[in-house]
Structures are given as structure tokens and as C-alpha cells.
């Protein structure tokens, strides 16, 4: 293998980008909710898990195909996100931030344990919604599922960017995020805007959950814990509160993990991911995309 290094590099990039696009999907929800409420929603990883389970029920019991299952799961998670916001966070709107943070951790444990109670802690096998075709491009291997993940993630991110930048609701979200009091004075319904943000963020996380279920073939009630933390890192890396930052952060994190496991050692994978976070925060505390005039959501 003469071109061994280059060959491996490209293959690891493929691995990293498909993993990173999932981190990006979850990170988007984190970043949107932080942008509008200044709340780190620790339950977000569990919404991702909830989405995966709704997708599981759709495909294995209701026998839906990929797209309908994805849409049902996104709607289900969006509703769940709105309910959580209404029940757990809205009453705390004027409480100190630490209280809301702890509420978020509580919601996270609640979702995990309710799922353990109803669905058992055993991992479930996700039904194969489409057969995985393996493509050999030159010497590189790409899986049809990796392509589906990447394409779905891209489509969703484009849709989100459109909603935030071009629609009235998006405008309201940006306004509330910029200055909630001023937005209220301008006649924007803050509560419903926040509700809308939770719905959008949760729907994206659910899409990530379904894609992961299909890709790795197995889901369990605690599957949201680690990706939740990783996505949080991705969101901070890109600049929390900034939508393109979350996408960039997610992809960078995935690629770094793949490259470190591939070329240094798999034991340093997580250490490297967090080391990069620390370095970026030292030199650019606002995150990669953080600018002086921040366009937040």
C-alpha cells in the first residue's frame, strides 16, 4: 500500500463527517435553546433518545418506511419538547439560572428512567428500513446509510436556516434571542416563540436519533447521554447560540475523533476532542464562529 496514508486519511474523513453530522443535528437544538433562553438544556440528549424510540415504534410496530417514520418521530419529539418547555421550564422563567439548569438535569433523568421503566433497559434492535449497500469508490468504502445520514442532515440544516432567516417565526426567534424585553415591546409573543424553538430543536434531535438507530442498528434508554455531551461540546466549540457554529462544531468534532483514533490512538479520542475545546475557548472564548456582532437565534 504505497498511498496508504492518503487512502486512510480520506476514509477517516468519510467516517468522521458522517459521525459529525449527527453531532451537528443534536448540537443545533442545544444552540437554539441556549440562544433564546440562555439555558443549557441537558434533557436534549434524551429528546434524541425519545426520537429514536418513536422511530423504532414507527418502523417495527407500525411498519412505516424511512421517511414517514422520520417525520412522525420529528413531530412526536417536537410535541414532547414543547410539553417539557411548558411544564418544566416556563414556570421557572424568572427563577435564577442555576435553578433552571438543575430542572433540566431533572428532566433528563426523568426521561431516561421513564423509558427504562416502559421499554426496559435492554437495547433494542432497530429494524433495517433499507438494505445497506456498500459502495466502493476507488479504494474507499462508503455505506448507503452514511450517505442517507449526510443528506438528511444537510437537508434539515438548510431547512432550519431557511426557517430562521426567511420566515416570520424565524424573525421572531431572532428578535427574542437578541433582546427578549424589546421583542415583547414590539408585540412578539415570547412564550409561543420559545415554544416554537423547543419544537424545532427537538425535531432535529429526533431526526438524529432515528438516523443513529438505522445506522448503528441498536437503541437503548441511555443512548442520549454521551452524544448529548459531545453535541454540547460541538455547540460550544462553534460558538453557542450560533446556528452555523453548531454545524461546524459538530463536523469538526466528528472529524477530529476519527482522525485521532485513526492516526494516533483510539484511547486519546475523547481527550483530543475536549483538548481542542479547551484550546479554542482559551483563544476564542466565544467559539469559532463567535463574532462581536452576534447573530443569534
Amino acid at each position: 500500500m504505497e498511498s496508504g496514508f492518503l487512502h486512510q486519511l480520506v476514509q477517516q474523513l468519510i467516517n468522521g463527517i458522517s459521525l459529525g453530522s449527527i453531532y451537528a443535528l443534536i448540537a443545533l437544538g442545544y444552540t437554539m435553546i441556549y440562544g433564546i433562553l440562555k439555558l443549557i438544556n441537558f434533557a436534549h440528549g434524551d429528546i434524541y433518545m425519545l426520537g429514536a424510540y418513536i422511530g423504532f415504534v414507527c418502523t417495527s410496530i407500525l411498519k412505516l418506511s424511512f421517511l414517514p417514520a422520520l417525520i412522525v418521530s420529528m413531530i412526536g419529539a417536537a410535541l414532547a419538547g414543547m410539553v417539557i418547555e411548558r411544564v418544566a421550564y416556563r414556570p421557572m422563567r424568572n427563577a435564577p439560572r442555576i435553578a433552571i439548569l438543575i430542572t433540566a438535569i431533572g428532566v433528563s433523568f426523568f426521561l431516561e428512567n421513564v423509558m427504562i421503566l416502559f421499554a426496559s433497559p435492554q437495547p433494542r434492535t432497530f429494524p433495517a428500513v433499507f438494505t445497506a449497500t456498500v459502495y466502493h469508490v476507488g479504494a474507499w468504502v462508503v455505506n448507503s446509510q452514511q450517505i442517507v445520514i449526510l443528506v438528511s442532515a444537510l437537508v434539515l440544516m438548510v431547512a432550519l436556516t431557511y426557517i430562521v432567516n426567511q420566515t416570520r417565526a424565524g424573525k421572531a426567534m431572532r428578535a427574542v434571542s437578541f433582546d427578549a424585553d424589546a421583542a415583547r415591546l414590539m408585540g412578539i409573543d415570547i412564550d409561543s416563540t420559545i415554544s416554537m424553538t423547543f419544537a424545532l430543536g427537538s425535531a432535529l434531535a429526533a431526526a438524529g436519533g432515528v438516523l443513529v438507530g438505522i445506522y448503528y442498528n441498536s437503541i437503548d434508554p441511555l443512548m442520549g447521554m454521551v452524544p448529548g455531551i459531545k453535541a454540547f461540546v460541538a455547540a460550544v466549540l462553534g460558538g453557542i447560540g450560533i446556528i452555523p457554529g453548531a454545524m461546524l462544531g459538530g463536523i469538526i468534532l466528528g472529524v477530529v475523533e476519527a482522525l485521532v483514533s485513526g492516526f494516533i490512538s483510539s484511547t486519546f479520542r475523547d481527550a483530543a476532542a475536549f483538548a481542542i475545546l479547551i484550546i479554542i475557548l482559551l483563544f476564542k472564548p466565544q467559539g469559532l464562529m463567535g463574532k462581536n456582532i452576534r447573530e443569534k437565534v
Binding site: 486512510q8 477517516q12 467516517n15 485521532v260 492516526f263 490512538s265 483510539s266
Partner: peptide
């Protein structure tokens, strides 16, 4: 190579 319990993606290590 090594991984951690609860990991789900092993492609990077396997590619290596």
C-alpha cells in the same frame, strides 16, 4: 486499539 463501554461508532478504529 481501544474503545469505551457505550461507544457506538468504531469505524475509525476499524479503518486503522
Amino acid at each position: 486499539e481501544a474503545f469505551l463501554a457505550k461507544d457506538v461508532d468504531f469505524k475509525a478504529s476499524l479503518t486503522k
